[in-house]
């Protein structure tokens, strides 16, 4: 169980691709891909179970990343948690405020790029798409389901077929 104030970055079931200012993470369990910008990546790397949110704020400053607030770090942790990139979910810390409101508040006060985790669900396997539940008898939407093998027809069961 994560201590909400000392979160731990998830390591298992992930393929991690380090880039200059970003980190790309592919979740093998959910087949979701996440792109962490520099700020989000820094917070994620700092979530080692010993660093508190206050410690991560200090780490930002120490590593010449700039001065940030605890809300800034929480914003990153909230997104990391929501996307399953922490060992255990962390409760939203922004009592009564939406993320948009928090973003606005932090954004106005911060000179550092706000933490962003961009995510997408990758398409299902091409072979699995052989049964892609296309609308029966309606080939156009079926063919749009890349890479659905049938671009001409679907059988009445909604299965890609010749």
């Amino acid at each position: 169980m994560n201590n909400a104030h000392n979160p731990i970055a998830r390591e298992s079931g992930l393929v991690v691709q380090e880039m200059d200012n970003e980190v790309l993470v592919y979740d093998l369990d959910s087949n979701k891909a996440h792109c962490l910008n520099e700020s989000a990546a820094f917070v994620w790397r700092s979530c080692d179970g010993t660093n508190s949110v206050a410690d991560i704020v200090k780490e930002f400053d120490k590593n010449s990343k700039g001065k940030v607030s605890e809300d800034f770090v929480w914003l990153a942790i909230d997104q990391l948690s929501e996307n399953g990139l922490l060992n255990a979910p962390v409760a939203k810390p922004f009592a009564g405020q939406s993320r948009r409101e928090v973003l606005k508040k932090i954004g106005l006060a911060s000179l550092v790029a706000l933490p962003v985790v961009a995510s997408l669900v990758t398409p299902q396997s091409a072979m699995a798409a052989g049964s892609c539940a296309c609308p029966a008898g309606n080939p156009a939407p079926c063919a749009a389901l890349t890479p659905c093998p049938s671009t001409t027809n679907c059988n009445p069961g909604g299965v890609c077929a010749p």
Binding site: M19, D20, E22, L24, A33, C35, A118, T122, P123, T146
Partner: peptide, 14 residues
């Protein structure tokens, strides 16, 4: 960016 580019290509990677 590099990360954005990779993310955008991923759905097209069979």
């Amino acid at each position: 960016s590099l990360g954005e580019g990779v993310m955008q290509l991923m759905p097209q990677a069979i």
